[in-house]
Design a protein around this nucleic acid. Structure first.
Length: 408
DNA sequence: ACGAGACCTACAAA
DNA sequence: ATTTGTAGGTCTC
């Protein structure tokens, strides 16, 4: 067992409106964070295991480094006297950078609420949802895996990928942490078959082919050239990204277009990478959830935009950019999170659940019918263990369904 | 342009 | 105990 060096817990003053770790790390933008019983989130990042914990007033963080990360260097006398080794120096910077703590989220929520009553109604139960600044390559891999998939399995796939191809970083709470493998690690001919064997399905080919393409362009240099220059990687100075247009800034549009050349990357995945991996705040990924939201709350789904074609996809993005502005993708993420099954409990609190008979007619659902369908007890039921069943919903559920649950 | 199918798999629900 | 539906889409006709 390699010797590791663990830094003491340190803290940054952050309130829950600026960052809600529990929501942000579970809402499907990152797939590698693991939570332990004591509400500590951990992930292998930048050659260390970064651990995060939050209370009402502070974000607490610490890093655990493998031996090899510091052994070749000698701590300075000052570092020795303060007990602060050199490698911790950039951990706060890493936390600030990764969690994207720069923008004032409280102000942004205020701005979006003023512009949009629907946002104003939905957002209060989903405060502190912040877009992370993930590594572009990690975002690319994660979102290629996301197609026709769910968050649980995407996370399992990322875990397997790191376990089999990534570097071992260390152990925390008897869990082993592996970092993301570099693109060149996935370029060997046998990788596709192996990934299939590991359960990646048809995405195995996409990952292999994408890894080859990225690798040919000097690892991730090409990918990082597509970044928003106002949101550079650590250590690079920010420069202006140009003026905002209805379809997004020039650089965003170019990044999106270029990403489409990769296998397994369509418009939605490209937008996820733009938003979460490349720092383009105006990118609005339109997936099934967002399409439902656009139909239910923003009058899409009829006439010209009755189905989610390429033209409709762009129109939805344009609509949200005109409504929410330059950080439309951030606002989109709040509503997206509100729509996730994993967070359904927050919606059920003050909601009257109505019985709805599911009629499968050809007619388009009215707005009220669509709403009611989403709040049907059958759908809510999946979200809760029996003990935390919302009283209102449980009253409406057929007793037979509960019996059946117990048997298995 | 637009619409239909096929595509891997794990996991819950019936 | 099996079968079916589904989950933050993309590619190919």
């Amino acid at each position: 067992m390699a010797r590791m060096r663990t830094s003491p817990w340190r803290k940054i003053s952050v309130n829950l409106a600026e960052l809600c770790l529990d929501t942000t790390l579970r809402c499907g933008q990152s797939f590698r964070w693991k939570k332990s019983e004591d509400d500590v989130w951990s992930c292998a990042l930048h050659g260390r295991i970064l651990s995060l914990r939050q209370d009402a007033t502070h974000l607490h963080y610490r890093a655990k480094f493998p031996d090899s990360a510091y052994e070749p260097l000698t701590p300075s006398p000052e570092q020795k006297s303060t007990g602060k080794a050199f490698e911790e120096d950039d951990t706060e910077a890493l936390v600030q950078h990764y969690l994207n703590l720069g923008p004032n989220l409280t102000d942004l929520y205020e701005q979006w609420s003023t512009a949009d009553t629907n946002f104003k109604n939905k957002a209060p139960k989903f405060t502190g949802v912040r877009i992370l600044r993930q590594d572009a390559w990690e975002a690319l891999v994660g979102f290629i895996c996301s197609s026709n998939n769910n968050i649980i399995r995407i996370s399992q796939m990322m875990e397997k990928l790191c376990l089999h191809y990534g570097p071992f970083i260390g152990e925390v709470d008897s869990r082993r942490y592996y970092d993301m493998p570099a693109p060149s690690t996935l370029t060997a001919p046998g990788v596709e078959a192996h990934l299939r064997q590991l359960g990646f399905g048809y995405r195995a080919k996409y990952l292999h082919r994408t890894a080859v393409m990225i690798s040919e362009e000097q690892e991730s240099a090409w990918l990082n050239s597509l970044r928003n220059p106002e949101s550079p990687v650590m250590g690079i100075k920010a420069t202006d990204a140009g003026e905002m247009l209805p379809g997004g800034r020039e650089g965003y549009r170019r990044a999106h277009e270029e990403l489409l050349t990769l296998q397994g990357v369509g418009p939605k995945v490209a937008d996820c990478i733009c938003l979460m991996g490349l720092g383009w705040g105006e990118a609005v990924p339109v997936d099934t959830h967002v399409w439902q939201i656009a139909q239910r709350d923003y009058k899409f789904g009829r006439g010209k935009h009755s189905s989610l074609t390429k033209a409709t996809y762009d129109a939805v993005g344009d609509k949200f950019r005109s409504l929410w502005g330059k950080e439309a993708g951030w606002a989109h993420s709040v509503l997206f999170t509100a729509d996730l099954r994993a967070f359904a409990e927050r919606l059920s609190k003050n909601i009257e659940v109505k019985e709805v008979k599911q009629e499968h007619t050809e007619t388009v659902l009215t707005e009220t019918q669509v709403k009611a369908e989403i709040l049907t007890p059958v759908r809510l039921k999946r979200e809760f263990g029996e003990e935390e069943f919302p009283p209102i919903a449980v009253k409406k559920i057929d007793a037979r369904q509960i019996k059946r649950r117990r048997r298995t």
